[in-house]
Design a protein around this nucleic acid. Structure first.
Lengths: 156, 156
DNA sequence: TATTGTTATACTCTATAACTATA
DNA sequence: TATAGTTATAGAGTATAACAATA
């Protein structure tokens, strides 16, 4: 543990503010409705994971990427299957496992959803200079990594 | 809605990563145990609100600052009273209202807790230059404000 | 014997609704 | 009639435990 300069204590309320606004606003659900689907945050998270991966993922892999636990993913995937947005296919390499892939409808929906989310994010940053945007991206990425690593060690 | 430059899509996973690590890690609870208390996140949030305010706050004011709803605060304050960390006092200006204040034990506990949290945050940023730290603080604050405002408007 | 996924259950956090007391 | 707070209840999100099938 090092010394605690004054600038740190100003970051703390900001982090809590960000965490609140991201975790509790109805923005995600609203954007989902805009995309013509009507899903909650966790199922959208799975859709995004599959979209960003660009290939079918195993249940355990999705859970790892979302930093949640297996059974949680199982239930959400059932919901996505019920809606025709994803499907489970056999894993050719391992008969125990299944791979989850987007259906065409799911791929289309996640595209529309992303457009809305990125649009709102772009609006939030519309008053920013290009340089400040780049700097934010760089520092935010580094910060997220450093904080994740530090808190993981804290958790042992 | 404006265009969506490429740098935005790199920010998105970072935000989700930050949100996850802040919201789900056991760090808060661990830091609380370090401080000799053993509280969950919402009650610690109330303790922090009272500490930062530096004066007794009404239930409704705490709820507004934490961006939660009244009944939630009521229950957490009961828990804090039960543990002797806070107490409710009459509001001299309004017989309907109560003000919540830290007890000496509560003030001491929140001090120890803050020390642990800021220590970990300082460790996470220990490899950073002073300038990058200042810049992070500045951009993070602006970002939190802009995003909060944009999402509030999105929610109507 | 270890691992993948599933089913069933429980816990944490927050919200909504109905109510009491005071303004 | 409106406001501050409380009580009771419900919901979303995630975790743990016990189990099945395959490696």
């Amino acid at each position: 543990m090092t010394d605690t300069p004054d600038d740190l204590i100003t970051v703390l309320p900001r982090l809590s503010q960000l965490s609140t606004v991201l975790g509790r606003s109805r923005f995600i659900e609203r954007a989902s409705a805009n995309a013509g689907i009507d899903l909650d945050r966790p199922t959208l998270g799975i859709l995004l994971s599959l979209h960003m991966a660009g290939e079918p993922l195993r249940i355990g892999e999705i859970a790892k990427r979302m930093q949640v636990v297996g059974p949680h993913v199982t239930r959400q995937v059932h919901e996505l299957e019920r809606r025709g947005l994803a499907r489970r296919i056999p894993d050719p390499d391992d008969q125990r496992a299944r791979r989850v892939e987007l259906t065409p409808a799911g791929a289309e929906a996640v595209g529309r959803y992303l457009q809305t989310v990125l649009g709102a994010l772009g609006d939030a940053l519309s008053g920013w200079s290009a340089e400040d945007r780049r700097t934010l991206g760089r520092l935010l990425g580094r910060f997220a990594d450093d904080l994740t690593e530090r808190l993981d060690r804290f958790d042992e």
